[in-house]
Simulated assay, not measured.
Amino acid sequence: MAPGTAPAALRRRRTRERLRTLGFLSPWLAGFTVFFGYPLVATVYFSFMHYNQIQAPAFVGLRNWKYVLQQMPLFGPALWNTLWLVVVMVALRVAFGIGIGLLVTRVKTGAGFFRTAFYLPYLAPPVAATVVFVFLLNPGTGPVNEALSAVGIDAPNWFNDPDWAKPSLVLLSLWGIGDLMVVFMAALLDVPKEQYEAAELDGAGAFARFRYVTWPSITPIVMFAVVTGVVQTMQYYTQALVAGKLASGVTVGPGSVIQPGYPDHSTLTVPQLVYSLGFQNFNTGAACVLSLVLFAVAMAVTSLLMRRSAGLLTAED
């Protein structure tokens, strides 16, 4: 074999392998570029532009950033509401999902009924589920307040009270806990029964068995539920907007513009503010700035959760 022939053949084989790998990755790369890469670059570009979706974009430098971060009065409340929902809603959904999963997997009779009953609300479309929930919690005619009044409890105004509006949205999310229930049921049923039997022989009680057997086994699923919950809640839009509009009693007609956040901007989230700026007020530059801020916050929170120091993953996971 002539000198240099083997290295040349090896290079050609490696080139073919790279091209073959690139061919298998090309559908993902095309989707990533079209649906994430280009929109992200365009968002950064328009954040430095004055663009009303009619006239050509005009470069304005950091004016949009200064307006959003220093002059926009609703940016602070919207960011606070979004972060509040992320912390409270995600934590309660995970805890409630684990509890319901434990209940359904431990029940001896009627397990199918309970699984169906807890999963059915999740199948309802978000708008329909919100409409039903606002009707149930209507302070004047809702059956929940009527039942509480019948037993002598002063019922809150729920979606009409700024102090109760966000907790009402949390209750709505817990009502549709069926998705997490199924995920945690699968994780709980996958825990080896031999470990429970060994723990019982060692005299471990119910809490000790959950702490030392159940929790280490479902920790990766908990991490998955937390991270996906944070990402979804950062995009929280439909339920808060529909609940605010229904609770306000404002009739939506052709050409009407409803400012989100009723009551007193207590349900205003950053995605609602992005839509209001970009598609109602045609301030695309400020809407892009808000989108980038939301993206940065979501990435920061997700990165924090993915760190091992967050305590949700052990070293061997």
Rank of each mutant, 00 (worst) to 15 (best):
A2T: 09
P3C: 02
G4A: 13
R11N: 13
R14Q: 14
T15R: 14
L19Y: 07
T21D: 09
L25F: 08
L25P: 10
W28Q: 05
A30M: 15
T33Y: 11
P39W: 09
V41P: 08
T43L: 08
F48Q: 11
F48W: 15
A56Y: 12
A56R: 14
V60C: 04
K66P: 00
Y67F: 13
L69I: 10
Q71R: 14
G76K: 05
L79M: 15
L79I: 11
L83I: 14
W84M: 11
V88F: 04
I98E: 03
L102P: 00
G110N: 04
A111P: 05
F114R: 01
P121T: 07
P121S: 09
A128W: 00
A128K: 01
V134Q: 00
L137H: 03
T141V: 13
T141N: 11
T141G: 07
A150P: 00
V151R: 10
G152C: 05
D161S: 13
W164I: 07
P167F: 10
S173H: 06
D179Q: 08
D179K: 07
L180H: 03
M185S: 15
A187P: 09
A187G: 13
V191G: 06
P192A: 00
P192Y: 00
A204P: 09
F207E: 00
I218N: 05
T219K: 14
P220W: 07
M234G: 09
Q235A: 14
Y237L: 15
Y237F: 15
V242G: 05
A243Q: 06
L246G: 06
A247W: 04
S248H: 08
G249N: 08
P254N: 10
P260W: 06
S276H: 09
N281W: 14
N281V: 05
F282W: 10
F282R: 07
N283R: 15
G285F: 02
G285M: 04
A287M: 06
C288Y: 06
S291N: 11
L292I: 12
V297Y: 01
A298K: 01
L305F: 12
M306P: 00
R307G: 13
G311S: 12
G311K: 09
A315I: 05
